[in-house]
Amino acid sequence: MTYVVTDNCIKCKYTDCVEVCPVECFYEGPNFLVIHPDECIDCDECVEACPANAIFNEDDLPEDKTHFLALNEELAQIWPQICDQKDPLPDADKWDGVEGKLEHLDKSVPEA
């Protein structure tokens, strides 16, 4: 079992979850965060810390968000690990709660 970051994180990228994660299992893309499923210890700290309510326990994923489990695993393999809290994206408040954000996901690998 793992926790899964879903679409409401896209274009927001609050990192409050990163700050509380005891095992540093978050990975960062240009406009989204993911959780590496093999590193997550199911502590639940990230769920309450996420101001966008974008993180779910794998067992509690809404039916329309189940594809995010595979997406988290895929992107955690190519994106760099993030260990420190950063500022959210500039328009995070504007994007929080917007429907249909998956089309805005940038899967590119950030430059080092």
Rank of each mutant, 00 (worst) to 15 (best):
A70W: 13
G100V: 10
W79Y: 07
N53I: 08
T2G: 03
N31Q: 06
C25F: 02
V23Y: 07
H104N: 11
W79L: 08
P90N: 09
E99K: 10
Q77V: 01
F26P: 02
C21R: 13
V20K: 04
I35S: 11
A92R: 09
H67A: 15
D44G: 04
I35T: 13
C9I: 05
V34D: 00
P51Q: 10
P80R: 01
K65Y: 07
Y27P: 04
E103I: 01
D84I: 03
H67T: 12
N72Q: 08
K13D: 12
C83D: 11
L69E: 06
E58T: 06
D59Q: 14
E58V: 11
C12T: 06
Q85V: 09
N57G: 00
I82L: 13
E28N: 01
L69C: 05
C9N: 15
Q77D: 06
D38V: 02
P51W: 05
I35K: 14
M1G: 03
E74K: 15
V98H: 13
F68A: 03
V34E: 00
F26L: 02
D96C: 03
Q85Y: 07
N57S: 02
A70I: 10
L61S: 01
D38A: 10
E28V: 02
L69G: 09
Q81S: 08
C83Y: 06
A70D: 15
F56N: 01
C12G: 04
E39Y: 02
C46Q: 12
V98W: 10
E28Q: 02
P22M: 14
D96R: 08
I82G: 07
D44A: 12
I10C: 04
E39A: 10
E28L: 01
V23E: 07
N8F: 08
D60G: 00
G100W: 05
D59P: 03
